[in-house]
């Protein structure tokens, strides 16, 4: 094995092969975060069910019963939960990934490993949480007798889009956070604000047609529409929106990766 250490210049190398070599560490870090999160709590892993479930109950009461927001003809609980599922994955995984470098500053300044492992392991934790809350969705859908069609097979694709978007934005903000500590205030604001901009509590069909493509530049629109389309099948799929969201996500991931690799060389120096 031959390692060369020298200053990197110009466009950064992605070194994704090295990240792959360290995949076990990624797994260990994700596992550590999950174990620790539930270790000190009395009801442990139940929290993974309670949080999305209670959010859904509150939304159903406030937006479904009181505000009487339309829900594409399905029970509001099902309507909101299909959106909450990808949204909660995005908001937690994004916030955790964005915080992953600063939060593990001690490790960064004491040992080498591909830094990308940190935001990636945060996203991995999010995926596991997502799978847990997915079980609730299944129960809710059974409870409301929601029929499932073959379109459900497309669901993993929409989730993949959601993961790509979350990774891109998370990786980008993780390196921004190292340089600009203002992110500590900006990140929670973004995830809160973002929920009202994305069609979580309402249907994206309510957006005027001429604005819809522009609106779909937010990849969460495509993700949520895709979730509702494949699970509920109440509306037609707005294809230009899916394309727009996919392009945004991929561009963001590429930009995020390169920005991260370009700035990671100073992580240990400014930590």
């Amino acid at each position: 094995m031959h390692t060369i250490i020298k200053p990197r210049r110009g466009l950064a190398q992605l070194d994704l092969a090295e990240v792959w070599q360290y995949r076990e560490l990624l797994g260990f870090l994700a596992w550590r975060d999950i174990v620790i999160r539930y270790k000190q709590t009395t009801i442990g892993v139940l929290w993974a069910f309670i949080r999305p479930f209670l959010t859904m109950v509150i939304f159903t009461v406030v937006f479904g019963r009181i505000a009487k927001l339309p829900s594409e003809g399905v029970p509001y609980a099902v309507f909101s939960f299909t959106a909450l599922l990808p949204w909660q994955f995005f908001s937690t995984a994004f916030a955790e990934a964005a915080n992953s470098i600063v939060g593990n500053g001690h490790m960064i300044s004491k040992i080498y490993f591909p830094r990308l492992i940190l935001p990636l392991s945060s996203v991995a934790v999010g995926i596991i949480d997502f799978l847990i809350s997915f079980v609730i969705l299944i129960f809710i859908m059974i409870g409301y007798h929601t029929p499932v069609s073959a379109r459900a097979a497309a669901l993993p694709l929409f989730f993949l889009l959601c993961v790509v978007f979350t990774m891109g934005l998370g990786i980008f903000f993780a390196s921004l956070y190292v340089r600009f500590r203002d992110m500590r205030h900006l990140i929670p604001f973004l995830t809160q604000f973002g929920m009202y901009v994305s069609p979580v509590i309402f249907s994206s069909t309510k957006i005027p047609a001429k604005w819809r493509l522009l609106y779909s530049l937010n990849p969460m629109v495509a993700v949520i529409d895709g979730f509702r389309w494949s699970l509920l099948g109440t509306t037609e799929l707005y294809v230009p929106g899916i394309v727009a969201g996919t392009i945004t996500s991929i561009v963001l991931l590429v930009v995020g990766l390169f920005y991260f690799k370009k700035t990671e060389r100073v992580f240990a120096d400014v930590m």
Partner: peptide, 10 residues
């Protein structure tokens, strides 16, 4: 952990 500003190490 950190990168040199100049030079090379093998």
């Amino acid at each position: 952990i950190t990168e040199p500003t100049e030079g090379r190490i093998d």
